[in-house]
Design a protein around this nucleic acid. Structure first.
Lengths: 157, 157
DNA sequence: TATTGTTATACTCTATAACTATA
DNA sequence: TATAGTTATAGAGTATAACAATA
């Protein structure tokens, strides 16, 4: 059996359309959940998603992270990290610790106040996220995670 | 067999952790693809994602859409749609057509120039999106679309 | 020379609220 | 009174590029 050029084109078209539909849906889901989280962070904690994300990174790295590392992990440029860090330092939630071996660099760490502030936010944040996905079974969560893993893998080339 | 409170807590904890991991991955995937699209639209067409999205809505509705409808479909407030529309009108890509039956309202439509400008963008946009998902088989695309459908469904209550 | 981090700047996107005009 | 759309404003978020200090 032979595959005609027309067949190939038809298949390409339908796969393209499928990818586009998927992208729109992915974007919509993310935007809806992200909006919920932003609103919650603003209304309940007078903070923003990038600030929360920065603190979340520090919570996972108690020894601290360098500005450069934060910039990479948060996927934003350095100047922005400086700004966010300045705000959090001003509020006493985060501190810059000099690195003896490299006098250009700092380690940014949560303060004690920062850690407890983050805990409170993380509890609420977890509620919002669990709620966002409660329509799915554990098995479906796992499937989705795996499929998105493939997508993610493919972007980082 | 009996399910203890501790079992329930353990299960809750692991499901919560799973939801959080999933959310981080969903966010990362979306951000990576979105960045690709934004960069492409800027570099190749000197335009932005919200403007592209607005034109995409109009392309799907050749008879035009009211500002109110655009606002709803784009999930942004009215003032923003006015601003985006003003820009596109200034560039001759879009036009406001009075609605005889309601003198408060307009239909916003693509102009001929707008339609051909959008076609050119849509071709490139499709490439970027197909590329973003080319790591997945048609069956996996379908699965992902279906699972995200459940997620989306659950947000809109 | 290259790298870490900061500063300065500018632009896009967004929500909010007050407003005008029509319904 | 309610609705369609606009205006004005302020803030978040981002990238870029020039810069200082150190490696």
């Amino acid at each position: 059996m032979e595959t005609s050029v027309l067949d190939m084109e038809a298949r390409a078209h339908s796969e393209h359309a499928q990818a586009l539909r998927l992208w729109l849906r992915l974007l919509t889901c993310t935007q809806l959940i992200e909006r919920r989280v932003r609103t919650g962070l603003r209304d309940s904690f007078q903070t923003t998603l990038p600030r929360f994300d920065l603190m979340a990174q520090l919570e996972r790295h108690p020894q601290g992270l360098k500005m450069k590392e934060l910039s990479h992990r948060l996927m934003v440029t350095g100047g922005n990290v400086t700004g966010l860090t300045d705000q959090l330092v001003a509020e006493g939630l985060v501190e810059r610790v000099p690195v003896p071996s490299d006098r250009r660099a700092f380690l940014v760490r949560l303060t004690t106040a920062g850690r407890s502030a983050f805990e409170a936010m993380a509890v609420e944040h977890e509620h919002w996220i669990v709620q966002a996905f409660e329509g799915l079974s554990a098995r479906e969560l796992e499937q989705l995670h795996k499929l998105l893993g493939k997508v993610k893998q493919h972007q980082t080339r």
